[in-house]
């Protein structure tokens, strides 16, 4: 019976203090009755090996004790969906981009690696870990408190069907935003062409700026992508819904644009700079510093580009061929 005593002792540990003895006495009586029945069936005293399956069938001590306790949860099923959305959003839109930026800097920036040699590179992630811990801790704490007070505060019971948000079709493109986008793009393009922005040499307020040899290539490539963008905007204006075609075109154009900018930032924009009162060595220093700053900022172009492309890809996947076919079938 030593095994039964050990089992009951383990169950007792998890039970509420006031009920411990009462519950254990009843459970003990049940187990001993089972053992007695088995013994009279087999005609001998049960060995530990024969008692073991009886106890195992009864359940683990913690599980058995748990059934006597009131059902408890830190965050109940009413608030859990909101909690889950907040935690997932926090991870997806804050912690993950932060981690990607850190990885980008750690991989592409030799200066950062030399400033943080060896283990210091991983220690530089300290603020990220702290943000993870604090955000998880405080969100969980706030929701646990809300869960305990929701019955008094009527957080989820006071609602009205009329105050629910309108159903939003994520594939619909607002004509207002398309017109705004077109206006800005056309105005920018017109201004660029008016000031002959494809030139390499600019004279502004007595300053002469010579752009890199790559600038005209970049400029005309950007004009091309902008014209294509205007085409997509016109398509969106005539049919204000994302289709597989327009979403894919947008993805391609964004990828192309960000690649162009990344290339320009990495290779440097300025070739030379001169102004009255500025020595040629100072001007050369300025050009070097400016191009160095641009090369260092290329990572941000990459990060922003990756985020934009991520949402573009999601849109394409969301629409999908079946979704397009459904739209056509439904006559939308």
């Amino acid at each position: 019976m030593e095994l039964v005593d050990r089992y009951l002792h383990a169950v007792k540990f998890w039970l509420p203090r006031k009920q411990k003895d009462d519950i254990i006495a009843e459970l003990s009586e049940d187990l001993r009755s089972q053992i007695e029945d088995k013994e009279s069936e087999l005609g001998h005293t049960l060995s530990d090996a024969e008692v073991e399956p009886i106890l195992k069938r009864c359940g683990s001590p913690m599980a058995v004790a748990g059934r006597y306790l009131p059902q408890q949860s830190l965050i109940g099923p009413t608030l859990f969906p909101i909690y889950s959305i907040i935690i997932r959003s926090l991870f997806l839109y804050f912690l993950l981009p932060w981690m990607l930026v850190w990885m980008g800097i750690a991989i592409f920036s030799p200066d950062f690696r030399s400033d943080h040699p060896g283990a210091a590179l991983f220690l530089s992630l300290g603020p990220w870990w702290r943000s993870c811990t604090y955000s998880l801790f405080f969100n969980t704490l706030i929701f646990a408190l809300l869960d305990r007070s929701q019955a008094r505060l009527h957080l989820v019971n006071d609602w009205n069907p009329r105050s629910l948000p309108q159903v939003r079709d994520r594939n619909v493109i607002s004509r207002g935003s398309t017109i705004f986008e077109l206006t800005v793009v056309v105005a920018t393009l017109a201004t660029w062409i008016q000031i002959d922005a494809f030139r390499r040499v600019f004279h502004i307020f007595g300053i002469t700026i010579t752009l890199s040899e790559r600038w005209p290539y970049f400029f005309w490539a950007l004009v091309l992508v902008t014209l294509a963008g205007i085409g997509v905007s016109c398509m969106n204006l005539s049919n204000p819904r994302w289709t597989r075609l327009t979403a894919s075109l947008r993805l391609g154009l964004d990828f192309y644009s960000f690649s162009l900018f990344y290339w320009l930032f990495r290779t440097g924009l300025l070739q030379s700079f001169s102004a009255s009162g500025v020595s040629s060595s100072d001007a050369a220093d300025f050009v070097r510093s400016f191009n160095y700053w641009m090369a260092g900022s290329a990572i941000w172009v990459l990060v922003i580009g990756a985020i934009v492309i991520f949402f573009d890809v999601r849109r394409v996947l969301r629409i999908g061929p079946t979704s397009s076919a459904r739209q056509e079938n439904s006559g939308v």
Binding site: E26, E29, D30, L31, C58, G59, V64, Y68
Partner: peptide, 25 residues
Amino acid sequence: GYTLRKTLADHGMAIDEGTLYPLLR
């Protein structure tokens, strides 16, 4: 408890002790 479990089991409603005793309480 034990005879109750046996009675229920004899009528096809087998129930383990971990479920029965909390329910009785």
